[in-house]
């Protein structure tokens, strides 16, 4: 059992690119769910449409990279508009169903063999990261003992955490304004807001677009940091994990999703690595008849499920939230 490996895995994950993807996606969910009370369970859909917007533009259509980024972000906005028009007038649970359905439709279509020529089928698309990687100023990776990153990861975390900081700044600026107050009020009771002369539908739509843009950014960053756009990465389970990250950090707080994603990945990677170490080798710490090395990778998911339940029951405001302010109760 090598504790160094475990600690390295946990810290590297907490600061690594994957945590950034989650942070960006969860910042979007925070705008949707935390501030406005919109139950968007299709954040993976916003990610995939932006990601494939970029990948298809560059790989399939052979157009410039930066145009691809713009296409991806516009695609996310269009998705928000299309989703919003039918559902934002309906009860919250309808938005949940429709967003899940849409993100699954997108995932299935992007992975379909019938559209392999455009989207690359289940293997997805590759070969669009060159311009991104060419900007990498670093000469090599680093290893600081408790964390280690490759050269590419180092570039990705530089870009990624800068993006996260900018997004947080924007969220902070708008949520302290009267605009943010309208969103929070809609979360509490949209009829009350309507009765005061605010166009609730327009505000919900703006929130859906803004959060969807953060989701799109997450999707684009995800495929850039790993160099390929694979449809199965954008499944509904991802959205659920992003919710878990958001709730750990605390919804309706500017830094909640960021801290939450770091803790989420710290725990997931740490626990995963711990049990993988504990079941490794010819005479593992945990005997084979209790847990095989295959099963060891499931422990973190079991604990994650349990943890999400307990968190929601006993600390719905998240680790750092204020109970009186938390958005999640009632309907």
């Amino acid at each position: 059992m090598d504790f160094g490996t475990i600690i390295d895995a946990a810290f590297s994950a907490a600061f690594g690119p994957q945590a950034i993807v989650f942070a960006l996606a969860a910042i979007g969910l925070n705008v949707h769910f935390g501030y406005t009370g919109l139950l968007n369970f299709g954040q993976a859909g916003f990610m995939s449409i932006a990601a494939f917007g970029l990948a298809v533009t560059v790989v399939t259509w052979d157009l410039p990279f930066w145009l691809g980024i713009i296409v991806g972000m516009i695609a996310a906005v269009i998705l928000a508009l299309i989703l919003g028009v039918p559902t934002l007038r309906l009860r919250a649970d309808y938005l949940a169903i429709v967003t899940i359905a849409t993100s699954e439709i997108l995932r299935l279509v992007f992975g379909a063999v019938e559209f392999k020529d455009t989207f690359g089928g289940s293997n997805g698309l590759t070969g669009f990261v060159r311009p991104y990687q060419n900007l990498n100023p670093y000469g090599g990776g680093i290893d600081l003992g408790i964390v280690s990153f490759s050269r590419n990861d180092l570039w990705s975390i530089t870009v990624g955490w800068s993006l996260v900081a900018l997004c947080c700044l924007l969220v902070w600026a708008v949520m302290r304004s009267p605009w943010g107050r309208v969103l929070k009020s809609i979360r509490e009771d949209e009829d009350a807001v309507r009765s005061l002369g605010k166009n609730v539908f327009a505000y919900k739509m703006q929130a859906l677009v803004l959060g969807g843009l953060f989701g799109g950014l997450a999707g684009i960053f995800h495929i850039l940091k790993q160099g390929s756009a694979v449809p199965t990465d954008f499944n509904t389970t991802f959205t659920f994990y992003a919710y878990a990250a958001l709730l750990i950090g605390g919804a309706a707080r500017v830094l909640g999703p960021v801290v939450g994603s770091m803790i989420f990945w710290f725990l997931i990677a740490g626990i995963g690595s711990f049990f993988s170490e504990a079941t490794k080798g010819s005479s593992p710490v945990i005997p084979d008849w209790i847990m095989t090395s295959d099963q060891s990778s499931l422990i973190r998911l079991i604990l994650l499920g349990l943890g999400l339940m307990l968190l929601m029951i006993f600390r719905p405001q998240g680790i750092f939230g204020d109970r009186r302010e938390i958005a999640i109760d009632g309907r």
């Binding site: 009771d189 005061l196 009186r324």
Partner: peptide, 22 residues
């Protein structure tokens, strides 16, 4: 229909019309 998780003064401010910050 008060906005339970907003303060009383924030509830009041919400009522004002024609806000540029909105």
């Amino acid at each position: 229909k008060v906005l339970a998780k907003l303060t009383v003064i924030e509830n009041m401010r919400l009522g004002a019309t024609g806000q540029r910050g909105e």
